[in-house]
């Protein structure tokens, strides 16, 4: 199998995930044994106030403890920097809360290994049958609206704009470790990748409802979030090298 040659890293940003993190890690290890894959894991503890850090250290889960809370963008970027420093070929963003299913990593990674894409997004909406959990109606409207503006700006249709289940190749690991949006990183980084004329692909995945904890987007912030994301998408310019 080609997979073995590539160094693959799962970046797991974690903020107060004591309920899920061990379970998530054990599933990955089991999966590695079962399917003879060799996915490495790095947990980025974003200044959790609970026992996330202790659980990781006690169970020998590779972890970087951020000394201050950076928010999802800063935490994920730390993972990309780690991937860059340790010379990984592929980095995958993977949620620590049980939303993402490890068995789909293979599908997400495949277009990159086959050199068909530089970035792959695990999408809930490409194949509706694939995912039972489609998230709430309000959230879907938001995702579609972001999708519309991304199309407007980049001429490309991205269905699951806020999916945090994504894989990138070496080139993008380097780009992201240099510069990664700290605010609303999922949609914004997608647009930036497109603006660099890198190849983006969506593959269908199924997501579970969160096993515990709460999502990072609070309901009262949703409208504010939408306006900000849309503005940022419209104002993005191709960054100079």
């Amino acid at each position: 199998m080609k997979t073995k040659k590539q160094k693959i890293l799962l970046i797991i940003p974690a903020y107060n995930e004591e309920e899920n993190i061990l379970n998530t890690y054990q599933k990955i290890i089991e999966y590695n044994k079962k399917s003879k894959t060799n996915y490495d894991v790095i947990v980025i503890n974003d200044g959790s106030k609970d026992n996330t850090s202790k659980i990781c250290h006690d169970n020998n889960i590779p972890i970087i403890d951020l000394i201050q809370n950076l928010g999802i963008g800063g935490a994920v970027q730390t993972g990309y920097k780690y991937a860059y420093q340790n010379n990984y070929d592929i980095a995958i963003q993977f949620d620590g809360d049980g939303q993402h299913d490890i068995k789909y990593v293979e599908n997400i990674v495949k277009p990159i290994i086959d050199e068909q894409a530089d970035m792959v997004i695990g999408s809930r909406f490409i194949d509706k049958k694939a995912s039972e959990f489609q998230s709430s109606a309000a959230r879907r409207i938001g995702i579609n609206l972001i999708s519309y503006f991304i199309k407007l700006k980049t001429k490309m249709k991205i269905y699951d704009t806020t999916s945090g289940f994504r894989a990138v190749n070496k080139r993008i690991i380097e780009l992201f470790s240099i510069s990664y949006p700290t605010e609303y990183p999922e949609p914004i980084s997608t647009v930036e990748v497109l603006k660099y004329h890198l190849r983006l692909k969506e593959v269908p995945v199924s997501m579970n409802e969160r096993a515990g904890g709460s999502s990072s987007i609070y309901s009262w912030k949703k409208a504010y979030y939408m306006i900000n994301v849309i503005l940022s998408i419209l104002l993005i310019r191709k960054r100079g090298k």
């Binding site: 000394i67 950076l70 800063g74 970027q77 730390t78 780690y82």
Partner: peptide, 9 residues
């Protein structure tokens, strides 16, 4: 914060 956290790890 990122660099210091790397160093501590």
């Amino acid at each position: 914060i990122q660099e210091l956290s790397f160093l501590k790890a």
